[in-house]
Design a protein around this nucleic acid. Sequence first.
RNA 1: GCCCCGGUAGCUCAGCUGGAUAGAGCAGCCGCCUCCUAAGCGGCAGGUCGGACGUUCGAAUCGUCUCCGGGGCACCA
Length: 581
Amino acid sequence: MKHHLHALLDRAMGALENGGQLAATERPSYQLDRSRQKGHGDFACNIAMMLAATAKRPPREIAQLIVDMLPASKFIDKVEIAGPGFINFYLTPQAYLGTVATILRAGSDYGCTNIGVGKKVLLEYVSANPTGPLHVGHGRGAAYGDALARVLKAAGYKVDREYYVNDAGRQMDIIATSVWLRYLDLCGESFDYPANAYQGDYIWDIAATVHREKRGRLFHGVENIFSNLNSDNPETYLDGIIARSKQLLGDGNYCMIFDLATDTLLENIRQDLKEFGVEYDRWFSERSLITSGAINKAIVLLKKKGHLYEEGGAWWFNTTALGDEKDRVVVRDNGSTTYFASDIAYHLEKFGRGYDQLINIWGADHHGYVARVKAAIQAMGQNDGALDILLVQFAVLYRGKEKVPMSTRSGEFVTLRELRKEVGNDAARFFYVSRKCEQHMDFDLELAKSQSSDNPVYYVQYAHARIMSVYRQMQDKGLGPKVDASTTALKVLTETHEQDLLTALSRFPEVVEQAARNHEPHQIAYYLRDLANGFHTYYNAHQFIVKDKATRNARLALIAAVKQVISTGLNLIGVSAPDSM
RNA sequence: GCCCCGGUAGCUCAGCUGGAUAGAGCAGCCGCCUCCUAAGCGGCAGGUCGGACGUUCGAAUCGUCUCCGGGGCACCA
């Protein structure tokens, strides 16, 4: 409908320009929006006011010119000029009655738009290091990323969902070493476990597996590990332990523990996400960048383009020249490459796959990385505008009034799994996705766990369940669910509640489009709340299963359409639409 | 110190690519089940949109400054 009105306006403008009443250069990008208030019609356009300044004429006068030129349409009841110069459109019943038939015909395709047709997008989200179970902070990125993927698909984009696995680097060495130390403990050694090694119980679990399978074959006395280590600061000390572990275990055994730890933790993450309804098309391993030589290739490319220089034994990337606040190390003085080097290679690889747009969803703590990654992309001659980095702000956990401290290293955190178990997938996902991603989020566990009906997800799901229940009633009464959704049959839908519902239903495609364009799945959640409210109000005000067949049929068709849109909408944010509650 | 994000009703948040009287949920108060699920509906009350200045016909929305809260500024990942 919006597109229809746009076309009419453009034709009127064209006519005015051709007739010389308005200069063609003056056509601004105007707005055509749903009116906020009923007294202002169904759609409102601000074009006349946009033109007023350049045309040097009063907006209402310009509005009149445009209105006079508007082609006739069976969907427009009347057009009014109001306020400072708005053009308000009032639609005919025919305009929105048709949406019911459209919805029932299109089914779950209703709401899909084509703004993304022909465009390929790579969406990367969560990408948490496999150093432990996912916690509630990751849950937000997961729910948001997955919903965004669904919304973009509905808007016509071809979307690939990817998880970047940081299975290389120091953190993973710390994990492997932590496991070995716990294993030695299981072998009966007693020693001071380093405070900055991983503390979580899951380290014990993996160590127990090693102990069960290898018995004492990986044993070395702890004095061999800890003697003569530089303990000036905890991190150096830990690095020393890692080096000793590698040396004492030898490549084969060290890798065995490393791989077991990585595989176990990654599998755990995979399983968690899957159970949360979050799936991927590809798991991209950081180690594969090393083994494939992609990192070296990227470094060579940067050297060739003159972006690297050597200083203090390390290779630095001159990112300052490209908008970063400080140059960054790419190859350390010990010859190992940094995480940043991996990231450069990874993004180069992504660009090589031919996407129109790359979207990275990162935790807000990675904010410092945006500038340097963009700099790297420019340096390699790619268009950094094609990369969108969305930062998801932290969810701050509360137990009632009390803030819950969280740290992966200390093993002190609430896992996503615990949250799902206590709150349920639907409530968790709805809650996560109802806030825009850059908004800080207070997640009150007490409230979320309370299972009370306060949760908005139940409100929307309940509307769906209620409609299904009406259908069951119909069937019990032998009335059958046959619907006639023709405009003629729906003419009896004249109640205010019905009109409001029809308007809401016709808005859905616009909401999906907006949510996709702005990367804002929360708009779907808010829309659904609104639609459900319209339905519940209607439900309380009117009976659907009435004697009069025509009315009954029309109402049944209307709520069938509502049911479809609620179900489609919930699916877009990864929430189920139950038949009964 | 520099950089990001936020500051809207008692609480949690929408609205922010400028538009016509600022919205919702929860909490509070008052009503509604001989009737398709009351996990529902209706009503009342509640806000100088952190503050100041500026741009504009028009600012919660844009700009500058400022105050408060969160996060980031590693040869860590």
